[in-house]
């Protein structure tokens, strides 16, 4: 704790760097995943192909992926862009499955009713399908958020500033307090992000809270499924 009290500035600086590194992949990943998830959900063939490709991308370990990035992006080896793009790829890979599952969980009867009432395809998607898929999307996004915040620490191995710096520096200088600070700070960011997402979910999906147990089970299932890698 002595280390922490004399290094507040450094920790704050790294916390901001870490947040700046992890937010864009989460947001961009979510935005890209929705249309991809829709396409995956729409046709059997596209579902198989999209999920297979993303599954393989997700299998690429993070350090190699960071190292491959300059090959495709033409960026310098130590550029933060490499980490941002790589983390976005992981976020998309994780999120598309949730998006496809979420859209699939919407009762087709409700969609038919919406069409019968006169919603156009586009309106139906925005006003009925997407909101009803919300709880499953949210569950997926929470997983993406936690894993992105954690993965961002690895960026420091390839020289990109994040809380991971505290691990590397703490190891070199043999200061356990510094390493522990890094772990705790990472966990705190993850928890804060998670709480924010839950809050946003409550504001945007007010009905899902007092919703039937079936729904809650659906969400719980999809979380477990993401966890165990079967969906």
């Amino acid at each position: 704790m002595k280390w922490l009290s004399s290094n507040w500035d450094l920790v704050w600086q790294l916390v901001f760097a870490h947040v700046a590194l992890s937010v864009p992949p989460i947001v961009i990943g979510f935005v890209i995943a929705i249309p991809l998830g829709w396409v995956a959900n729409r046709y059997r063939v596209s579902r198989g192909i999209i999920l297979l490709v993303l599954g393989l991308l997700y299998t690429i370990p993070s350090i190699p992926l960071f190292i491959f990035m300059p090959l495709f992006l033409g960026t310098p080896l130590l550029s933060p862009v490499n980490v941002t793009v790589a983390l976005t790829i992981y976020a998309v890979a994780l999120m598309v499955r949730s998006a496809a599952d979420g859209l699939r969980s919407v009762d087709p009867d409700i969609l038919q009713a919406a069409s019968a009432m006169g919603y156009s395809g586009w309106q139906r998607f925005w006003r009925v399908e997407l909101p009803l898929a919300g709880p499953v999307l949210l569950a997926g996004l929470r997983v993406v958020s936690a894993s992105t915040v954690s993965l961002a620490t690895i960026g420091s191995v390839v020289g990109v500033s994040s809380l991971g710096y505290l691990f590397i520096n703490g190891f070199q200088r043999n200061i356990p307090g510094e390493v522990i600070t890094g772990i705790v700070a990472t966990l705190v960011i993850a928890v804060v992000f998670d709480l924010l997402l839950v809050l946003v979910g409550r504001l945007l999906l007010p009905w899902s809270r007092r919703d039937s147990r079936v729904r809650a089970r659906d969400v719980a299932r999809s979380r477990t499924a993401v966890l165990t890698g079967a969906g």
């Binding site: 894993s147 703490g170 190891f171 043999n174 390493v179 522990i180 990472t186 979380r223 966890l227």
Partner: peptide, 21 residues
């Protein structure tokens, strides 16, 4: 459930280095 969910956010590099120390 919360244990397996919570571990997701645990940075593996940090854990490795802490145990290494």
């Amino acid at each position: 459930v919360s244990l397996s969910g919570g571990f997701r956010a645990l940075p593996s590099l940090g854990l490795l280095i802490l145990l290494g120390l």
